[in-house]
């Protein structure tokens, strides 16, 4: 769109943009739990990006004296605050480094499934021909596959690398976006403003990208946040079962699994990574709840009137 604007008008048209960002920030600050969730997620993202670069050494060097070291032992350095694992590696450092893989898998899977799923959904919802009937069948087929079993069998036959896990998880999540997008497009397509655009002579691309997509994007983003949590849990389950990420790579799910034999003697090995998983998914869910309200113009007032319960 930007290329159709004159320089003079683009200034005017662009000015609301920073206002919008500030507005969203205000809406976020209006919801205390969502604010905390957002801050926590930012910390996790920073860990995921910087952790593997800075702490890789520390997280992989084995130290027999630190085997199953208990948490909150103040005589050791900061990274030992959560204790050490079965090979004497500091748990905090390992959790920070593992954030990298965990986030990479989830981000990859969510972006891939959202892109493919919503593209297919757009096609299925927008085209009135046979394509509109056939594409949703893909979702039906994938949905009827027991998804975890699908992952299991594919990883059984292929090697369980990061990319394969991303592919498997992405495939199992495609139907979510496909169905939502299709349902929304089917509805939005019939709205009068789309008809008005057709009457003006708007091309299909213009209708899809200018009129339909902006309307359904908030829904998709809300689902994506929710799905991010789901994918993380699925990856953790796979890693926990031993068919996901393989050592020496680490993810949080794998850490829980590795700590399992020591449950009774050193509970912290499984407890901390599990807790981080919970906190991350919880934050994502809270943020998704907030987004559902904040991105919907008809619901937004709930945040604007400030602090009130939004149920």
């Amino acid at each position: 769109m930007s290329n159709t604007r004159t320089p003079a008008t683009s200034v005017k048209a662009e000015t609301p943009e920073p206002g919008k960002a500030r507005k969203m920030l205000q809406l976020l600050l209006a919801d205390k739990t969502a604010t905390i969730a957002a801050i926590f997620l930012i910390v996790i993202i920073v860990c995921a990006i910087l952790g593997p670069l800075l702490l890789d050494q520390l997280a992989t060097r084995q130290n027999l004296r630190g085997r199953n070291a208990p948490p909150f032992d103040l005589t050791r350095s900061f990274f030992w605050v959560l204790g050490g694992d079965q090979l004497g590696r500091p748990l905090l450092a390992r959790i920070i480094v593992a954030a990298g893989n965990t986030m990479a898998v989830a981000t990859g899977a969510v972006i891939a499934s959202m892109t493919i799923g919503s593209a297919l959904g757009l096609v299925a919802g927008y085209s009135r021909g046979k394509l509109g009937d056939i594409v949703p069948r893909i979702a039906d087929v994938i949905m009827s596959f027991p998804s975890l079993l699908l992952a299991v069998i594919v990883l059984y036959m292929l090697e369980p690398s990061v990319s394969n896990i991303v592919i498997v998880l992405a495939i199992t999540r495609i139907p979510v976006y496909l169905r939502t997008t299709r349902a929304e497009v089917l509805e939005v397509r019939e709205r009068m403003f789309v008809q008005a655009a057709i009457v003006m002579g708007a091309s299909h691309l213009r209708i899809i990208f200018r009129h339909i997509l902006p309307v359904i994007l908030p829904t998709l983003l809300t689902i994506a946040a929710l799905d991010f949590a789901f994918v993380m849990l699925a990856e953790s389950s796979l890693s926990f079962l031993g068919i996901g990420i393989q050592p020496p790579e680490i993810t949080w799910g794998l850490m829980v699994s590795q700590g399992r034999p020591y449950l009774t003697s050193a509970w912290w090995l499984s407890f901390w990574p599990g807790l981080v998983i919970i906190l991350t998914t919880l934050s994502l869910n809270l943020l998704s709840n907030w987004m559902r309200v904040a991105l919907d113009p008809t619901q937004r007032w709930r945040l604007e009137i400030g602090g009130k319960k939004n149920g």
């Binding site: 709205r191 009068m192 403003f193 008809q195 008005a196 655009a197 009129h211 902006p214 309307v215 113009p297």
Partner: peptide, 11 residues
């Protein structure tokens, strides 16, 4: 169109 609320893109 009949209903201007719906015939104008809200965004």
């Amino acid at each position: 169109f009949q209903d201007p609320t719906q015939s104008l893109n809200p965004r």
